[in-house]
Design a protein around this nucleic acid. Structure first.
Lengths: 198, 198
DNA sequence: CGGCCATTTGAAGCATGTCAAATATCGTGG
DNA sequence: CCACGATATTTGACATGCTTCAAATGGCCG
């Protein structure tokens, strides 16, 4: 599918189950005043709407939109649901994935609730780098980065302008380099310590 | 168990599975600088550490502490896990509960990320009232409220002082009444509109 | 080359945080 | 039942991190 395409809408019943083969997407909700919270970035290897495997016929509480052009793997949701209902390796994997997701969401809430802007941004960059590295998509701290600063802002509960100031600050301090759709972490250690302290 | 007792510690392997019969507890994580994020208030009828049913032998990423004295129901986690592994009514219920939890955590993240203080507080009060009412623990908008302002602050990513100012403001506007371990919502409609707009 | 969109920078305002002290409430022992 | 100390709430003054608005710069594509 093409960039900007909406894959899931709020209130919609799920018809298909996807996995991302290439490209980035994001899961989000919109609030009054057209504010938007990005709940999660979806990277190659991630499932879109895992939660639909948990219960059938339940409308989505969030939306999912393609950030870039995507190549997807398509699955039949009722078949998948079957697989996950019965004991076995697939079920184990599924449960572990859901558990990971729960832990991740907890961490995210703690970040947004407790850390200052620089800590949140550092944390998010490190998380993305880690997830991409695990899939062979980051080399030496550098990776494709199709998200705009606006997306980081919406994910972290900050304004785009402020995200920019912090990113420029990181760049001046030679913690990261970015531009032209790429991001590179230059000083992982320093960035980690910012992510932890703030 | 007594108030303030810690039921689950970070990194600990789960030995038991509990449900709350009476009292309040809360799930939280601590960050450097001794900041604390409360992830969730646990009320009568809630399970403590549902996620342990998902996968075995996985250390907790969060802690759980009793806010008041608690009466608990104790279950054998491996038996429960069995129940949840096989298709059936129990599994359905479990999956629905997990799904609810996922949706709730998404909503929480959106609240903390996007709403201002008054909106977050209104939202939390309404959520708690709704959950308590569903269990017959709220009458006419009034209910036992053992949480201190400090707990609200830690749940919402605000300072205790600021939470107090907003609460006092709500009281002046006759939206709520509180004190002596009780809370009462006087003007549900106005509070809802604050919760939505901000 | 020109237009569009994203990034960058500046200036000013405001929501929220921090520090500190006063007041109210609660639990406990005399 | 009262008095006391400890803990929670309330209030004030001030500091600051972040937002908002606005405009300039830069990159990309037709």
């Amino acid at each position: 599918v093409r960039a900007q395409h909406t894959l899931v809408r709020v209130g919609e019943l799920p018809a298909t189950h996807y996995t991302i083969r290439s490209g980035w997407a994001f899961r989000y909700v919109t609030l009054p005043e057209s504010r938007r919270q990005i709940l999660e970035f979806l990277l190659p290897g991630d499932s879109i709407s895992l939660e639909n495997l948990l219960c059938e016929e339940r409308p989505a509480a969030h939306a999912v939109k393609a950030l870039t052009a995507l190549v997807l793997c398509v699955f039949d949701p009722s078949e998948m649901r079957e697989l996950v209902r019965r004991p076995g390796k697939q079920q184990e994997t599924f449960c572990t994935t859901v558990r990971n997701h729960l832990d991740t969401m907890d961490r995210r809430l703690a970040d947004v609730g407790q850390r200052r802007a620089s800590g949140r941004i550092a944390q998010l960059l490190l998380e993305l780098e880690g997830r991409l590295r695990a899939r062979g998509l980051s080399e030496d701290g550098g990776f494709e980065f199709p998200a705009r600063q606006e997306h980081l802002a919406d994910a972290l509960g900050l304004s785009q302008v402020h995200v920019n100031r912090i990113l420029v600050g990181f760049r001046k301090d030679e913690l990261i380099a970015f531009g032209r759709g790429r991001m590179k972490i230059l000083n992982m250690q320093a960035l980690t310590s910012i992510a932890l302290e703030d």
